[in-house]
């Protein structure tokens, strides 16, 4: 890969995550609305929302410190950084050697860490509530992530994502390995917990006492809110990309030619659409579990991930 190609791929990665994550959110919202018997918001509603937020003033609590102002930018940059390491349509990621899947997970944790701090920063009881709950869930989701990642890297014998995709993509037999399937199940649950979807968190709730992610961002407005919302969408996008491409690496371009890029893009779009459909369907048929059932769910996913590893050694 020459430097121009590397640079171009990096830029395209950033553009995709910035541009496509609102569409993904829009897709989920529209599908859910349809299942509820409504038309739902227009396709470009998230863009309209962002454009508007960016044009509004930001109201900041008198109690808040620089942490509050800093967090949205940090989150945004973290998501952009992660986007350089997550395969969308190609496995030829220019900076792959800089860090693997562990780096991705810890940058997610970094953004969660600061978001939780910003929840506490304003002194609002709701913010504290959100960060306490978010950190509880993050603390319990973390081990599952690590174990699921462990399982994947056992199967693919690497923690670097490009390598994982290349190896899994070249031997589809690996995908039907029980370890890989169990890891997939665990990763699905963790994805739901980390991105705040039902049945763990309800992204559309108006009840401040039940909120998790929303409670932390209740104080944000204007450009800060735009960045926080956008980051949350990107996080969902990134998690779904990881989920689909790590476990279904079909179609991810493994060479540097235009045709495979185009094919990769199309297949990627199809995969994400299916994932969005699955989320919309789940969120229609499920309710939100009681908050102290979430640990049971996560413990279950932890057990599945552990089983994945054990199955690797035993089978």
């Amino acid at each position: 890969m020459d430097y121009v190609a590397k640079f171009l791929i990096a830029v395209v990665q950033l553009l995709i995550v910035l541009g496509a994550s609102p569409v993904l959110v829009s897709l989920i919202r529209r599908l859910k609305a349809r299942l509820q018997g409504r038309l739902g918001p227009p396709w470009f509603q998230p863009y309209y929302d962002l454009a508007k937020y960016f044009q509004k003033e930001s109201v900041v609590s008198e109690t808040a410190s620089w942490i509050f102002n800093f967090t949205p930018y940090l989150q945004f940059v973290c998501m952009l950084l992660i986007a350089l390491f997550v395969p969308f349509y190609t496995a030829m990621l220019p900076l792959d050697a800089t860090g693997g899947i562990i780096v991705i997970m810890y940058f997610f944790l970094l953004s969660t860490f600061f978001l939780a701090l910003s929840g506490l920063d304003t002194g609002s009881a709701f913010g504290g509530m959100g960060s306490s709950r978010e950190m509880t869930i993050a603390a319990l989701a973390e081990p599952t992530i690590i174990l699921a990642v462990f399982s994947i890297s056992l199967v693919a014998n690497s923690t670097n994502i490009s390598t994982i995709i290349l190896r899994l993509g070249s031997d589809y037999g690996l995908l039907f390995n029980p370890t890989h399937l169990l890891a997939f199940a665990a990763f699905v649950i963790v994805t739901i917990a980390e991105t705040g979807r039902l049945p763990v968190d309800n992204p559309t709730t108006h009840l401040e006492l039940t909120m998790i992610h929303e409670a932390m961002i209740l104080e944000y407005s204007g450009r800060h809110l735009a960045l926080v919302e956008w980051s949350a969408w990107m996080k969902l996008f990134l998690f779904l990309s990881l989920l689909t491409n790590l476990f279904f690496p079909w179609g991810v371009a493994t060479s540097l030619d235009l045709l495979s890029f185009v094919a990769g893009l199309v297949i990627f779009a199809v995969k994400l659409t299916l994932a969005a459909g699955a989320i919309a369907f789940m969120e229609t048929i499920l309710a939100k579990v009681r908050i102290f059932r979430v640990p049971e769910l996560l413990a279950g996913s932890f057990a599945i991930a552990l089983l994945a590893i054990i199955s690797f050694y035993v089978l």
């Binding site: 944790l109 860490f113 506490l120 950190m135 603390a139 081990p143 552990l306």
Partner: peptide, 20 residues
């Protein structure tokens, strides 16, 4: 590994608390 992973998440929670 499981213990280490579980610890990792809890440390983050504990230090959000400590600092926050």
């Amino acid at each position: 590994l499981g213990a280490l992973a579980l610890t990792g998440g809890l440390v983050a929670a504990a230090f959000v608390k400590a600092f926050g």
